[in-house]
């Protein structure tokens, strides 16, 4: 029954990566920037949960979403918005700076030692397979979030405006779309998604430190690139692919220590074979 365990683990890890990757890919598609501080929003969410957990786990989750969104808005307004129209390199360096700023702030104000919580949601038995409740919740919540986001983008006015802005900012302005507002909405959604991912990660790892978000952040970035950065279904596919690779590596003891190396090697191979990622497209101009 190892096979079923592997699929379930793959989906759970993949779902978490996919949700983080969606934040990268939407911000890239709409604001045309790589938000390297995205992973650190997860860290902010993680600490918030740990802080509010003693009151109630639900309060922790809600506080995490609220606080991540606030930090996301502040970062966008203070660091990225003034650079609208600046060279992509300046924006990239700023994003890396924001990432380091958040990590250092956590170190200074909370301390470099990690803070932990204890959660045990138990297990359920399905035939001969035992599955942790957390894994199941992670899978179901990830699917729900992805379906909701897809419907939002496809069927709401704001969602469609997001596609319009990502495709052609100038033409979108000619429709009367306020591009700055759409970018802000994108950061809000991305930060809320990071908060959701932080819930899954904190409950699983049960330990939060200043670089809590760095590794999941960079892995999810790889997932977004593998799927085709800028593409929403691409981020989902990339996340699940990476999750399965991790689950498979986890089941084969001799290669388990090399999991990260294998994941990034696959990123490189995908980029060599298909530089735009699985679902990324090259824009064709029609005359």
């Amino acid at each position: 029954m190892d096979f079923i365990t592997m699929i379930i683990n793959g989906l759970s890890i993949g779902g978490t990566y996919a949700i983080i990757a969606l934040g990268y890919t939407m911000v890239y598609g709409i604001a045309k920037m790589l938000n390297f501080a995205h992973g650190d929003i997860i860290m902010v969410g993680g600490y918030t949960i740990v802080l509010f957990f003693p009151i109630s786990p639900v309060v922790g989750i809600i506080a995490s979403v609220i606080f991540c969104v606030i930090v996301g808005i502040v970062v966008e307004k203070s660091a990225y918005k003034p650079l609208r129209g600046a060279s992509p390199l300046a924006v990239l360096i700023t994003a890396i700076g924001v990432s380091k700023l958040l990590q250092s702030a956590a170190q200074i104000f909370i301390g470099s030692e990690s803070k932990g919580i204890t959660v045990n949601l138990g297990e359920i038995k399905m035939g001969s397979v035992k599955i942790s409740v957390l894994t199941l919740i992670t899978i179901l919540c990830s699917i729900a979030v992805m379906v909701a986001l897809t419907l939002f983008v496809k069927y709401t006015k704001t969602g469609r405006a997001m596609i319009a802005v990502s495709e052609d900012r100038g033409a979108a302005q000619l429709m009367g779309i306020n591009v700055n507002f759409i970018i802000m909405i994108t950061f809000i959604i991305g930060s809320a998604l990071a908060a959701v991912a932080s819930v899954f990660l904190v409950f699983k790892i049960q330990d939060v430190g200043p670089i809590f978000g760095a590794m999941p952040g960079i892995k999810a970035f790889a997932a977004a690139v593998i799927g085709g950065i800028g593409s929403i279904p691409g981020a989902m596919v990339g996340g699940v692919v990476l999750g399965f690779i991790e689950a498979v590596c986890g089941m084969i003891p001799p290669i388990t220590p090399y999991t990260d190396a294998i994941e990034f090697a696959i990123l490189i191979i995908v980029l060599l074979v298909k530089p735009t990622g699985f679902l990324g497209k090259k824009r064709r101009e029609k005359v």
């Binding site: 469609r160 596609i163 319009a164 495709e167 052609d168 100038g170 033409a171 979108a172 302005q173 000619l174 429709m175 009367g176 779309i177 306020n178 591009v179 824009r283 101009e285 029609k286």
Partner: peptide
Amino acid sequence: IPSHKIVKMGMTQVPEGRRIFSELTVYE
């Protein structure tokens, strides 16, 4: 005045090269 507000005031432009949203449907 930012472009999106100018549109609201009753002016718009069919841009050079059409610049339709190729990923959206005709209706959208």
